[in-house]
Computed example of a mutant assay.
Amino acid sequence: MSWTQAPVVGFDTETTGVDVGEDRIVTAAVVRREGRSTSVTTWLVDPGVPIPPDATAVHGITSEHARRHGRPPGPALEEIAGELADALSHGEPVVAFNASFDLSLLDAELRRHGLASLGERLGRDVRVVLDPLVLDRHLDRAREGARRLGTLCDHYAVRPVGALHTADVDVAATIGVLDALARAFPAIGTMALDDLHDLQVDAHRAWAQGYNARPPEPGRERRTADLSWPLRRARPLAA
């Protein structure tokens, strides 16, 4: 049976920012889909630091709301990591858009709170991960334009059920884009999951090397793309 017919577990976070060594998880969603059955688990977390206004403008969660209604990070992170490790240990791939951000931020948060990383829970490398961003970049390299989740939804005619930048909505949209990619590029649906994971490792590295070799746009600061996927190299954590 093709992996496209088997269970998958989607994962997404909304955060205080985009630095995986400094920023914190504010909301998270894990969505398990098996056939026509879908289960959704969400978390609202008090990150323990102020949520910048720019981040609130994206996901709508204020510091006051998170402090009043959010859970302490430790127990929430333990549950999130437990759900993902359980899926991976049972051979269910984790689906995440720009997976190296969400998974690396989760791993940093686990280290910050003295909790076992995903790799430590599994006793091996974190795999199999399916990332529609990495796959789209690799499979349709000639297409120009942005490759944000919203633009991929438009390109592949995926209609999100709700507003993007809400973790559970983003997960459902990400799984929808993955389904559309498998229809548009049927060869990936016939690949073994381990082979598809390895393809993404190589595809991301090739993309990152090309990105880093390009001169930056005038007047714009650009971060160096990490060559590792699906987890970036661990960096020192902010307190």
Rank of each mutant, 00 (worst) to 15 (best):
residue 1 M to I: 11
residue 1 M to R: 07
residue 1 M to K: 05
residue 1 M to P: 09
residue 7 P to G: 10
residue 9 V to A: 14
residue 11 F to E: 03
residue 11 F to S: 02
residue 11 F to C: 04
residue 13 T to A: 03
residue 14 E to Y: 00
residue 15 T to A: 10
residue 16 T to W: 01
residue 16 T to P: 06
residue 17 G to F: 06
residue 19 D to L: 04
residue 21 G to V: 05
residue 23 D to Q: 04
residue 24 R to V: 01
residue 25 I to Y: 00
residue 26 V to H: 00
residue 28 A to N: 00
residue 31 V to E: 01
residue 32 R to K: 08
residue 32 R to M: 15
residue 37 S to Y: 12
residue 37 S to L: 14
residue 43 W to N: 09
residue 45 V to A: 08
residue 46 D to R: 08
residue 48 G to Y: 08
residue 48 G to F: 12
residue 49 V to D: 13
residue 52 P to C: 13
residue 53 P to A: 14
residue 53 P to D: 15
residue 56 T to W: 03
residue 57 A to E: 15
residue 58 V to D: 07
residue 58 V to T: 13
residue 61 I to P: 05
residue 63 S to F: 10
residue 67 R to P: 02
residue 68 R to V: 02
residue 68 R to L: 11
residue 73 P to K: 01
residue 80 I to K: 00
residue 80 I to L: 02
residue 83 E to H: 06
residue 83 E to K: 00
residue 83 E to N: 00
residue 86 D to H: 08
residue 87 A to V: 11
residue 87 A to C: 09
residue 89 S to E: 15
residue 90 H to R: 13
residue 91 G to M: 14
residue 93 P to K: 03
residue 95 V to Q: 10
residue 96 A to H: 07
residue 96 A to K: 05
residue 97 F to W: 04
residue 99 A to E: 08
residue 101 F to A: 09
residue 103 L to M: 11
residue 105 L to W: 02
residue 106 L to K: 06
residue 106 L to G: 04
residue 106 L to S: 03
residue 107 D to M: 00
residue 107 D to F: 00
residue 109 E to N: 04
residue 111 R to C: 05
residue 112 R to H: 11
residue 113 H to C: 02
residue 113 H to E: 09
residue 116 A to F: 01
residue 118 L to N: 04
residue 119 G to L: 06
residue 120 E to H: 07
residue 122 L to N: 01
residue 122 L to K: 04
residue 122 L to W: 12
residue 124 R to N: 11
residue 128 V to M: 07
residue 128 V to G: 01
residue 133 L to D: 04
residue 135 L to T: 06
residue 136 D to N: 14
residue 136 D to C: 13
residue 136 D to A: 12
residue 137 R to W: 11
residue 141 R to Q: 10
residue 141 R to I: 02
residue 142 A to N: 07
residue 142 A to S: 10
residue 143 R to S: 07
residue 145 G to P: 06
residue 146 A to E: 00
residue 146 A to H: 12
residue 146 A to C: 03
residue 148 R to C: 01
residue 148 R to E: 03
residue 150 G to I: 03
residue 151 T to H: 11
residue 156 Y to Q: 05
residue 158 V to M: 05
residue 159 R to E: 15
residue 160 P to E: 15
residue 163 A to Y: 02
residue 164 L to Y: 05
residue 165 H to Q: 07
residue 167 A to V: 04
residue 167 A to N: 09
residue 167 A to P: 06
residue 170 D to W: 02
residue 172 A to P: 00
residue 172 A to K: 04
residue 176 G to Y: 06
residue 177 V to N: 05
residue 178 L to N: 08
residue 179 D to T: 07
residue 180 A to I: 08
residue 181 L to V: 05
residue 181 L to G: 04
residue 181 L to H: 06
residue 183 R to L: 12
residue 185 F to G: 02
residue 187 A to H: 11
residue 188 I to A: 08
residue 199 L to Y: 12
residue 200 Q to Y: 08
residue 201 V to K: 13
residue 203 A to G: 14
residue 207 W to S: 11
residue 213 A to P: 03
residue 213 A to Q: 12
residue 214 R to V: 08
residue 214 R to E: 15
residue 215 P to N: 09
residue 215 P to Y: 14
residue 217 E to V: 13
residue 218 P to W: 15
residue 218 P to I: 10
residue 218 P to H: 10
residue 219 G to H: 14
residue 222 R to A: 12
residue 223 R to T: 13
residue 230 P to F: 11
residue 231 L to Y: 04
residue 232 R to H: 09
residue 235 R to C: 05
residue 235 R to T: 12
residue 236 P to F: 05
residue 239 A to I: 05
residue 239 A to M: 08
